[in-house]
Design a binder for these strands. Structure first.
Lengths: 158, 158
DNA sequence: GTTGAAAAGTGCTGCGA
DNA sequence: TCGCAGCACTTTTCAAC
């Protein structure tokens, strides 16, 4: 009887521990992870390959300090749409606003909730007036400026 | 006359281009970046070292898909404090709530604005009731659940 | 500051258990 | 399925421009 063993699609404790280490520092060498978890480097490699194939790992990104690059203002925008059905079209246009780094379709007061990073308050006003208020279906917006980011981290696994 | 030359603390166009490439994919080899920008691998290394020393680079993190790890709910919380002066103490306690991945001190309706990632609606309710409502100074909270994350990216440099 | 190449360290692959 | 060992590649260093 033919019996093809599918790659193990379960995520076990070892996988979680590997991910936990790399989520904090993606440049940690496999050999160091292996030593810490008391397995071989090859095992780390196999597990990482599995996790990539499963789509659990979306990639590795470099974290930069926006302030050091002249981006001083982080703000949140609640956007009211005339009709909920305009969501897709609005998102399409909002994708062109490079200062928007995160955008959600949310329950509650607003249809759209966005996080935006810009140089200063003038820059923020420009984006609001010129790029966002002009989008089809956008009724009005509420802005919340972040005065301090006290927590910024990834989810803690398990 | 003693004249110590400080390391060049300016960020030029080459630095920006290097950062842009690595912000999309932190695993891009230096040799490949060098080839693309038509400089040597050594130069990339020197620039990266400078950017690290300047604190522009905060680290590299592995991006995972929370849903594939059983975290299905992303929500935003607006938290009202009785007094603004309770902020520091509240943050200290909120840091222990592992499901909170981002926390800001904001202008507008709320004192605190948080992003939270959890398993399901029950888990969210648990955190709200048991971990957040009990914190000193927390008056009430407003919850916005993300039904769809349409944009998630880093700032576009220059 | 940049280059190019040598040295050190890491990631990858196949065989064996 | 895991671990070990050799090979390929990348990062790091350094003398010279």
């Amino acid at each position: 009887m033919s019996h093809r063993k599918a790659p193990n699609l379960e995520i076990d404790n070892l996988d979680i521990q590997i991910l936990s280490i790399l989520m904090k520092n993606a440049t940690t060498p496999y050999t160091e992870i292996a030593k810490e978890l008391i397995v071989s480097g090859g095992t780390i490699h196999v597990r990482m390959k599995k996790l990539e194939e499963m789509g659990v790992i979306k990639g590795a990104t470099l974290e930069v300090d926006p302030q050091k690059l002249g981006y001083d203002i982080t703000a949140f925008l609640g956007i009211y749409l005339e009709k909920g059905s305009q969501y897709n079209e609005a998102v399409k246009q909002l994708k062109n606003v490079k200062e928007i780094v995160e955008l959600h379709y949310t329950t509650g007061s607003w249809s759209i909730f966005a996080k935006i990073v810009c140089h200063d308050t003038n820059h923020l006003r420009e984006i609001l007036n010129e790029n966002i208020q002009g989008i089809t279906g956008v009724q009005r917006t509420e802005t919340f400026i972040s005065l301090e980011e006290s927590i910024k981290r990834q989810i803690t696994l398990e």
